[in-house]
Nucleic acid binder design. Structure first.
Lengths: 107, 107
DNA sequence: AAGTATACCTTGACAGGCGAGGTATATTGT
DNA sequence: ACAATATACCTCGCCTGTCAAGGTATACTT
């Protein structure tokens, strides 16, 4: 059984940012990598993924550009901004705290 | 800064069930205890709390009865059912797994 | 020619959180 | 005496994030 989406909610943006910290990437690949790393227990549905991208872009946490593939389907790349790196750090810290707090409530 | 509600979502029902595992309780007290235990970093807004109760009741995870206070405001008590205990165990297990998976994605 | 993989996108429905509003009783402060 | 605060419950309607369902286009395999 894969992870309920309500448990992921609030972390999707952070997860996407995480995959952009090292290098630029694109939607399809990000999704595949997440599935590979979690043995398909976490999967961002593509509608969810793309709506997250719009949100991140609007907030200035990522920028985007079209790749110039001369073969295959076009790719839209995403790049994390400085603001995005900061947000990532904060989100991660908040996640650590939330984890701890929730754990303290679950006997 | 308190914990973003999207990080709690998916855990609110579990948190409520947790506070009913040891003994019956009522909304106002459950809320106070959660705030006390987390130094007010987690707070279920009462609209959230009561809608969660309706949900848990509908799913047969809790039962409810009116307390017979002869003084002060009336209290509606909640009692966890056997089904509720099972759900609690499963939710907790899923939370453990989700934690692990999310952590594996956040570099 | 059909199927699968890669790669993107939009729309509309749904569920949970919660701000804002409401009711009622008891205690504490001035 | 009266106001304020704490206790204790409740509903309505908005907002936001997820995602099923639908769509487009290219390239490779069978």
């Amino acid at each position: 059984m894969s992870i309920a989406s309500d448990l992921l909610r609030g972390n999707t943006d952070t997860i996407i940012l995480a995959s952009l910290v090292e290098h630029d990437s694109y939607g399809y690949l990000i999704n595949k990598e997440i599935m590979a790393k979690t043995e398909a227990q976490i999967e961002l549905k593509d509608a969810t993924l793309y709506s997250a991208f719009r949100r991140l872009e609007k907030e200035g946490l990522v920028t985007t550009y079209w790749g110039n593939e001369d073969v295959g389907a076009r790719r839209r790349y995403y790049s994390i901004t400085e603001k995005g790196r900061e947000a990532y750090g904060q989100n991660k810290a908040e996640w650590q705290k939330a984890k701890q707090m929730i754990d303290s409530l679950l006997v």
